[in-house]
Computed example of a mutant assay.
Amino acid sequence: MLDWMVWTAPTASVFIGLGVLLTAMAVWGRLSPPVARRGFLRIETDRGDRLYIGLITAAVVLAGWLAVTDLSMWLAVACALLAAAAIGRWG
């Protein structure tokens, strides 16, 4: 059915992970409604907003890493996850 797409294991795991993350956030939002707060981003955000901003930031970090350096991508992934986690926690 999807023979025209190149689905590698890393690609599939990213999309599966995003699906699980969004499902978990929806369940968490249903059980405990989010509350907006102001963090270092200087705007009022709830946890869904911070998740979205964190995902976009992680994508920018990874794309910038590819554009600027040829160091290990595992280090780039670690930096991207650290940035997303910081935004999620203190953003």
Rank of each mutant, 00 (worst) to 15 (best):
L41R: 04
R50W: 06
P34Y: 03
A63C: 09
R38I: 12
A85I: 14
W90V: 02
R37L: 10
L75C: 08
A84N: 01
A9W: 12
F40S: 15
D46M: 07
A67C: 07
S13C: 11
G88V: 07
R30A: 14
G88E: 01
M5C: 12
L71D: 07
G64T: 13
V68P: 06
D70F: 08
I87G: 05
T23L: 09
W28N: 11
I53Y: 07
V60M: 12
V27I: 15
V20F: 08
I87H: 07
R89I: 09
A80K: 02
A80E: 01
V68W: 15
G19W: 09
T57E: 12
W7K: 02
G19H: 03
A63Q: 10
S13G: 04
T57S: 12
I87V: 14
T57L: 05
Y52Q: 10
A85N: 12
V20K: 02
V68E: 02
W7R: 01
S72F: 14
T45D: 09
A12Y: 15
V35W: 06
A63T: 14
W4L: 07
V35Y: 06
W74G: 05
L62F: 08
I53S: 01
L66E: 08
L2W: 10
I87K: 06
W65I: 08
G39P: 03
G29A: 03
A36C: 02
T11C: 00
V35F: 10
V20D: 08
W4H: 13
W28P: 04
W28I: 08
A76T: 05
M25C: 09
W7F: 04
L41I: 10
L18E: 11
S32V: 08
T45P: 05
R50M: 04
A86F: 05
T45K: 01
G17E: 00
G19T: 00
M1I: 04
T69M: 11
F40V: 15
W4Q: 10
R30E: 10
G17F: 03
V6S: 06
L62W: 03
F15G: 05
S13T: 13
M5W: 13
G64P: 04
R37N: 07
M5R: 04
A12E: 14
T8G: 05
G91M: 11
R50E: 02
I16W: 00
G54W: 12
L66K: 06
I43E: 14
G19M: 02
V14W: 13
T45V: 06
I87M: 10
L71V: 13
A84L: 08
L31V: 01
G91W: 10
I16F: 09
A63K: 14
R37Y: 07
D70E: 15
W74V: 09
A78C: 12
F40G: 14
R42F: 15
T11G: 06
A76P: 07
V35P: 02
G48R: 03
L66Y: 02
D70W: 02
R89N: 05
F15P: 01
G54F: 01
V60A: 09
A83F: 12
A58V: 09
A24L: 11
G48Q: 00
P10H: 12
I53T: 11
W4Y: 10
